[in-house]
Amino acid sequence: MLSIKNLHASIGGKEILKGINLEIKAGEVHAIMGPNGSGKSTLSAVLAGREDYEVTEGEVIFNEKNLLELSPEDRAREGVFLAFQYPIEIPGVSNVNFLKTAINEIRAYKGLDPMDAKDFLARMKEKQKLVELDVKLANRSVNEGFSGGEKKRNEIFQMAMLEPKLAILDETDSGLDIDALRIVSNGVNKLKNKDNATIVVTHYQRLLDYIVPDFVHVLYNGRIVKTGPKELALELEEKGYDFIKEETGA
C-alpha cells in the first residue's frame, strides 16, 4: 500500500529526514517511535503534504501513485488521513458543514454524486457513537473551545467519517487521560480492517497496549534505526531511548 524509499526532507534548509525506508501493507499497523526531535512529526507532515517541508530526495508510492506529486487534498482523496497532533480550531465553520464538504469533494474526485443528506446524517450519528463524541460538539465549530481530549476524539471521528485507506495518527495519545485513550484506541481498532493500514506515531509505549502494532520502528535522527515486533516498544519503554543511541552508535 505504502512504499517509502530513501526519503529526505528538510525545512528552512535544515535536513530532518535523512533517508527513510518503510513498507506498509494493507491490514497492518505500524508504530513509529522515537525521541523528541527525531523527525516523527516531520514524517507525518511530509506524507500529508505539508508545503513547509521540502522533499530533497527519495520517493513515496501509495497504491501505485507517486504521493509526493499530489496536492494535500488529492492525497486525502486517495485515502491518506492524518490525525493531527495539534488539531486546528476553525471558528465559524461547523463540523457538519466541514465534513459534508470534505466527503462530497472526495466523492466528486472519485466520480460519485454527493452523499444523500439522510445517509450523511445517519453516518454522523453512527460514527459519533464510535468515539463517544457528544452530539453537541459535532454541531459546533470545528474544534473551537474543545478540550485537548475532545479534539483528539474529533480527529478519530473525522477519520471514521472519511474511511481512509491509510491513517497516520500523529501523537494522538499526547494529552489524553487513560479513559480518553481507551475510547480513542477503541475507535481506531473498530475502524481497522484487512483493506486499510495504520501508522501510529508516538513517543510512549502506552498507546500500543491498546492499538497493537504488527511492527515497531524506531526513528532516530531522521532515520529508522531499528525495526522489530511489538515487544520492541516495551523494551524501549523500559530502557529509554538512550539504549538505541548506544546500540546504533549514533
Binding site: 494535500p72 487534498e73 486525502a76 476553525i90 466541514f98 469533494e105 472526495i106 474526485y109
Partner: peptide
Amino acid sequence: DKIFYLRARGLSE
C-alpha cells in the same frame, strides 16, 4: 494552518 487542515481532509484549496 487552517487551510492545510481543511485540505488534509480533502477540500480543495
